[in-house]
Design a protein around this nucleic acid. Structure first.
Length: 565
DNA sequence: GCCGTTTTCGGCCCGACTGTTTTCAGTCG
């Protein structure tokens, strides 16, 4: 996609200009331009053709000319000029903790360092210590910074981040009061990957809380430890940043540390125009503090309604909030049930009874048990005989466990020709059928899926793109737009699968789906009773995709759930 | 380089921590 390429070039221009010590606002302009292009919903070539490019906030005459030049000549002179004399491999070193443009320039000038290998050598051969401003501690910190950069260039998936956050709270909770602790940052915004964890704890004894964190046995190295702020690396190389704030500043601190950075910059700009200053301790008019105890208060001081954390990406939410058009974001409690769940009859871990009981305990009004059908051999798919046996077990669970309506469900496979492995016994009795592609990811998946959607028995397409977060890209050549169009026309639901390793549809894709009138199914994709909790994550991801109750099919009562056949 | 409900020129977000400094620059989030 040409948008991503242009965004990348603008980012590199910003890095190069910064390295050269150019006007920092010009640097900022390119950096913002890079983000603006990356966030576009449309292809830039369309905007150029319709002369709407400069309507995009952050794109003015200069950047528009750069883009037009790139589209017509496949090169960008601003990029070539900016990068002249700046090795690309040098700019990548910005990722090493402790190295910014100034120190990079100094290392380049004094030691002719141009890449990571050169930096590693210079540190080993003790040459860095000779450069003015590089004392022994800084050199040591760079040595570790390089090591860490090499080891963990990758970010954590949301799933890893959630597991680590629970581990930290569990250990830290034995030392200090963590009842009001919150993980802010990208974890609270539900980004698909997190670079590090931002932990926020209200307390008057900052030093003690920071010290308690640094003492945990999972901590491998302490990067910083002050009265209000501490940073540590834990055993698996991940970084945890802790901030301790007074309880009456918690709202302001939450805003500040939840971000995103771009969202916060916009908030501060708005504040400044109103003669207000906003920081992690509150909103101030001169010396007087006018807000800060709750997030709602902070937004109200700027005449804005509270914006859900998952939406804070500066992708139009601030304008929508200002204009009163912010959608009423989905709340977890509005989800009435889960319609994609496996039991030990196929590849789930828990029996029907335990799974149903867990759903009842969670207040689900309905639950579809969608074990795999027979062709999913690896998943011990249901044969007609085993389908009948499971049906008897479901009937017993219905009698014994009140409160939750259990549906006879099935997950069928979309085969190489777009057929589904639905057998007559299931066709006769199933109350909810989901379909997915499980093999042949390179074989005409779009056409197969469209064909499967013609089958009246199919209620939903699950994990529609087939991707795994950070591990697998999804079906080759997949045309999501074609599937969205068909889903909107036929009423077949598309799933937002909240398995943190899948997140499929993604929040952004779900937003596109909802905008086109597709009915979105938010489900856990559970393979065990405890996985049912993921539905809460699903609700958060739906908010990230700007979904409302009306966009999500499983907010409806069961009787109005299924489409007309 | 971008932008305008105080502006077409003069602004452009804020604070903590570290290390190397003798009062502050650089980096980070």
């Amino acid at each position: 996609m040409v948008n991503q390429e242009i965004s990348r070039l603008f980012g590199l221009i910003a890095d190069a200009l910064e390295f050269k010590g150019e006007n920092r606002f010009r640097v900022l302009a390119y950096r913002r331009g890079s983000e603006a292009v990356a966030d576009l919903d449309e292809d830039v070539s369309v905007l150029v053709a319709e002369a709407r490019l400069t309507e995009v906030p952050g794109i003015g005459k200069g950047l528009a000319a750069d883009i037009a030049e790139y589209l017509s000549r496949n090169r960008m002179s601003a990029y070539e000029t900016a990068l002249a004399g700046v090795p690309r491999t040098l700019l990548e070193l910005k990722g090493v903790s402790g190295l910014g443009p100034k120190r990079l320039a100094l290392l380049h000038r004094e030691l002719a360092i141009t890449d990571l290998a050169g930096l590693e050598r210079a540190i080993e051969e003790d040459r860095v210590a000779g450069v003015p401003g590089f004392g022994p501690k800084l050199v040591e910190s760079l040595r570790r910074g390089v090591q860490r950069y090499v080891q963990s260039r990758e970010r954590m998936t949301l799933g890893e981040a959630l597991r680590l956050s629970r581990r930290v709270l569990d250990r830290l909770g034995r030392e200090v009061d963590t009842r009001r602790a919150v993980f802010a940052g990208s974890l609270r915004r539900c980004r698909e990957t997190c670079g590090d964890l931002d932990l926020l704890i209200p307390s008057r004894k900052g030093g003690e809380v920071v010290a308690a964190l640094t003492r945990l046995d999972m901590v491998e190295r302490v990067l910083a430890a002050g009265e209000t702020k501490g940073s540590v690396l834990v055993d698996d190389g991940r970084q945890i940043d802790l901030r301790v704030v007074p309880a009456d500043s918690l709202g302001a601190a939450l805003c500040y540390f939840t971000g995103s950075k771009e969202h916060n910059v916009r908030l501060r700009e708005i504040a400044k125009k109103r003669g207000l200053k906003i920081n992690e301790y509150g909103v101030f008019r001169g010396e007087e503090r006018v807000a800060g105890k709750t997030e709602k208060e902070v937004y109200a001081a700027l005449d804005l309604p509270w914006i859900p954390p998952e939406m804070r990406e500066n992708r139009g939410e601030i304008e929508a909030a200002r204009d009163g058009t912010l959608p009423e974001a989905l709340r977890f409690r509005q989800l009435r049930g889960d319609l994609h769940v496996h039991t030990s009859w196929s590849n789930g871990r828990d029996p029907v009874q335990d799974t149903v009981r867990a759903a009842a305990e969670r207040g689900h009004r309905y639950l579809a048990l969608t074990d795999h059908a027979a062709s999913a051999l690896h998943a011990r798919g249901l044969t007609p005989e085993r389908w009948m046996a499971r049906a008897a077990e479901i009937e017993r669970a219905r009698r014994e466990i009140p409160g939750v309506r259990v549906l006879h469900g099935l997950e069928v496979d979309i085969d190489q020709d777009g057929g589904i492995d639905l057998f007559p016994e299931a066709a006769a009795r199933a109350e909810w059928i989901v379909a997915g592609v499980h093999a042949g990811f390179r074989n005409e998946v779009t056409a197969r899926m469209l064909r499967a959607m013609d089958r009246p028995e199919v209620d939903a397409i699950v994990h529609p793109t087939g991707r795994l977060v950070d591990r697998r890209a999804g079906y080759e050549g997949f045309d999501l737009d074609a599937v969205l169009e068909k889903a909107a026309r036929t009423g077949v639901c598309l799933e937002l699968n909240a398995d943190p390793d899948r997140l499929d549809l993604s929040a952004e894709e779900a937003r596109r789906a909802a905008a086109r009138g597709v009915r979105v199914l938010v489900s856990s994709g559970a393979h065990g009773a405890s996985d049912l909790d993921r539905l809460e994550l699903g609700a958060a991801l739906a908010r990230r995709g700007w979904l409302t109750r009306d966009n999500v099919v499983n907010t409806a009562p069961l009787r109005s759930l299924r489409r007309k056949r």
